[in-house]
Each structure stands twice: as structure tokens, then as C-alpha cells.
Computed example of a mutant assay.
Amino acid sequence: MNALLNVIWLLFGGIWLALGYFLAGIVCCLLIVTIPFGIASFRIGVYALWPFGQTVVNRGGRVTAVSSIGNVIWLLVAGIWIAIGHVLTAIPMFVSIIGIPLGIANLKLIPVSLAPLGKVIVPSSGTYLPTYR
């Protein structure tokens, strides 16, 4: 079922959303200072390609003061606008019955678009055991 929903998602906007995140990631990586934001943008872009069957979790003990400050900067510069965009694109998706899961997936992208640093994307089934310390 996740594969079918991912294909429908990809056809009805997921590819454009992911391309937007990838473009933002390239721009951030070109600016050198914003490379962490670029890496986060790439991570969100991959998640935006195939959101069904994945979830976002906190990295755990690896969240540092630097990533917290980075999240505040991201929130003020881009996060709020990206979240508004997700809400505005989710609303028309809820109009049809087929679009309801797509709208939910779009809303599921909001938390990671608000604060992407210190997060990791994992499969939603099974348990997640980090291999780093």
C-alpha cells in the first residue's frame, strides 16, 4: 500500500516538492556557510519523494546547541514559509478522497521543515536503533 501511495504522491506533486528542496540544498551548499542547511534540505527532499513508510525522529543525544541555534535561524529564514506552503498545498489535496492521504503526508512534512537539524528519517515499521554514539 505504501508503494502505491508513494507513486500517487510522486505524480501529484511529490516530484516538484522534492526538486524544490534539492534546489534549495544546492544553493545552500554553494554558499559554504549554510552547508548544514543544504544537507538538511537534501534529507527533506528525499523524504518528500517517498513520505509513505517513513517517519522523522529526533537524533537523540546528538542534538547540540549548534543544531538548536541552526534550527532557530532556519525557522526564521525559511521554516515558517515552507510550513505555510505545506499547509496551503495540503488544503486542496483534502478535497478528494484519494487526496486525503496525500494531504496528511504533506502535513507530515511540516515538523521537519520547521526544524530539520537534529532529526533523522527512518522507516516507520519496526524499531530504530541508532548505531552511532
Rank of each mutant, 00 (worst) to 15 (best):
R43C: 04
P116K: 03
G53C: 13
S68D: 04
S125I: 07
I35L: 11
P92H: 12
T34A: 11
N2W: 11
P101C: 10
P92R: 13
T89L: 14
V112P: 05
F42I: 02
V72W: 11
N58F: 07
T89F: 13
F42N: 02
A65Y: 02
G126C: 12
H86D: 09
A65E: 12
T64N: 15
G99H: 01
R62E: 09
G45T: 05
I100D: 07
S124G: 03
A83Q: 10
I121W: 01
P36Y: 01
Y132I: 08
V122Y: 03
V95M: 14
P130M: 11
G38L: 01
A18K: 02
G20I: 02
G45W: 04
V56N: 09
L109W: 01
L31Q: 06
G118M: 08
I121A: 01
I98K: 12
S124M: 07
F37C: 06
V95G: 11
F37G: 05
W9Y: 04
S67F: 00
H86Q: 13
F52E: 15
P130N: 11
L75V: 12
A83N: 11
S124K: 06
V56C: 14
L76N: 08
G45N: 07
G70N: 09
Y132P: 00
V7G: 06
G38D: 05
I110Q: 14
G38E: 05
W16D: 09
G60M: 03
I84F: 13
A3D: 11
I91Y: 12
A78V: 04
K119S: 04
A65I: 12
A90M: 12
I84N: 10
G70K: 05
L117Q: 03
I44S: 01
L109I: 01
G25N: 09
V46Q: 06
G38H: 05
V57E: 10
I35N: 10
L11V: 14
I73D: 07
T55E: 15
I69H: 06
S67L: 06
A90S: 15
I69L: 15
L4E: 08
V63F: 00
L129H: 15
